[in-house]
Every structure is written in structure tokens, then in C-alpha cells.
Design a protein around this nucleic acid. Structure first.
Length: 181
DNA sequence: ACTCGATGTCTTA
DNA sequence: TAAGACATCGAGT
């Protein structure tokens, strides 16, 4: 297995962490209060057995800037970057690839996403798969909601999901947002 | 507003 | 291979 790397990104909301492998994005941690917190979340999820040293620069042009712009309220797309999803189960990959196509500011339901990948009864499986998303925000799983309520956002909590959706529902940048209350 | 059954995929043992 | 976990859904009350 080829080597993976990571770097911290400083945003208006705190410290994110980005990991990559084979020139593809492998993992992303939504902004945390400290680098240590972001790192511990990364280690818990990625289950890497080897130690990684943070890199100075992210080898993806303008990605850092886009993330920062996003949290300042600007509409930003991440679909131009390659995702490393190779070690995920096939169904999970399909769900995430379809999720990546949901445009900024739009939402669909778990059921609609299930239909989109040709498994109309798999809404619940879709939700379960989204919970495995290694690239939240970049693969916008927060734009998938339940039919009658917000749905879930297991690893970061529903607050964070609603925060992301509220950012995207505001056309005016410059407002202050905080998931830590 | 609430229960409850059917549902697909993945992990674990 | 069987059981259990789930970020669901819709019908019935």
C-alpha cells in the first residue's frame, strides 16, 4: 500500500485535517477547536497503524483556499478533485459518488439518493453508507436529509449538519458561524 | 405524534 | 452463515 500523507488547514471555524494518497484525497476532518482534536479524530477513523508526519503544503491547487472560502459563506465546489475511495465496499462507493454530484445549496432525501443509484428500497442502507463518508463536506453528505426531518450526522452530530446547510442557504458571505456552542 | 414492520448493506463472530 | 447495527420510510392508529 502506498503511503498516505496529511496536513492541517486553518479555517474560520478551526482546524481541519486533509489526508491524501496516490494523488487523491483520502480523508477530511471538519474544523475542530485544535489541531490535536482534529488529529485524534483522524486517527480514530482512519485506523492507520503507521505514524504520519504533517506536511507543510497541500499538493492540490486552491483546495485550502476553497475550504476557507466555504466557511466564509461563498458557494464553492469540490468535485474537481480526485477522491480515493478504493478501500470502501462497492455499494458505499456508489452512494458516495452519487452524493458528490449534489450541487451547493441543494438537498435530496435518502430515498431519492437510493433511487438514483438504482436501489429504490435501500434508503436505510444509503444512510448507513453515508455514515462512512471519509470526505465530509468535499463529498457533501450533509445535503442528504430524511424525508420528514434532518436525518442524522453521526460522527459530527446533527448541529454540524445543520450548520453546513445554514451556511449554504445564506447567499451573503461574511456572517459568523459556529458549531461549538 | 407515535409505533411498527420491511428494508439493503456491511461488520463481526 | 447468521445476527445485529443503522444517518429510512410509509402506513396504521
Amino acid at each position: 500500500m502506498s503511503r498516505a500523507y496529511f496536513s492541517y488547514l486553518e479555517t474560520g471555524l478551526g482546524f481541519s485535517l486533509l489526508s491524501w494518497q496516490e494523488d487523491k484525497l483520502r480523508a477530511f476532518i471538519l474544523p475542530q477547536k485544535s489541531k490535536e482534536k482534529a488529529l485524534s479524530m483522524f486517527q480514530k477513523q482512519a485506523r492507520f497503524s503507521f505514524y504520519l508526519r504533517p506536511q507543510e503544503k497541500v499538493p492540490f491547487p486552491s483546495l485550502e483556499e476553497r475550504v476557507q472560502n466555504y466557511f466564509e459563506g461563498y458557494p464553492v465546489s469540490f468535485t474537481t478533485y480526485p477522491f480515493y475511495l478504493d478501500d470502501l465496499p462497492p455499494f458505499t462507493r456508489e452512494v458516495l459518488k452519487a452524493t458528490a454530484l449534489i450541487p451547493y445549496g441543494k438537498t435530496i432525501t435518502y430515498g431519492q439518493l437510493a433511487e438514483k443509484i438504482g436501489k429504490p428500497r435501500a434508503s436505510r442502507a444509503v444512510g448507513r453508507a453515508l455514515g462512512q463518508n471519509p470526505l465530509p463536506l468535499l463529498i457533501p453528505c450533509h445535503r442528504v436529509t430524511a424525508r420528514y426531518d434532518w436525518g442524522g450526522y453521526s460522527t459530527y452530530g446533527l448541529r454540524f449538519k445543520i450548520l453546513l446547510l445554514s451556511i449554504e442557504s445564506r447567499p451573503n458571505p461574511g456572517g459568523s458561524f459556529s458549531p461549538f456552542v
